[in-house]
Amino acid sequence: MAKVETMPTASPKSMSRPTQWNEEVEEAYRFQLAGYRDEIEYKQVRKTDHVDRWPHNGFIKKLIRRDGCFYYYDRTRECPDKQINKTKLYAY
């Protein structure tokens, strides 16, 4: 069931931890909950260009995990305060 990643990935140059919530943090939190670093890795692993987003605010709506299961996200903020500094923001 689990897909092994075979494509070469662009590795990030640095990582920082946020202290405050913003949309970028929310985006990273949603990808990392599903087991991906960020959108770039998700697109590489899933071999797709499409990511389901909520039309009104652009938050991630649906992600497919590495084992093929689906994670569905709310239309509003999901990242709780205590998870903010556990989220990782990667820079390339």
């Binding site: 649906k62 084992d67 299961c69 689906f70 994670y71």
Partner: peptide
């Protein structure tokens, strides 16, 4: 639904699309 018992237990992993 996939039955998981991990630490971040606030989400359901759906096996098919809702």
């Amino acid at each position: 639904i996939a039955l998981e018992h991990d630490t971040k237990g606030n989400k359901i992993a759906w096996k098919v699309e809702i």
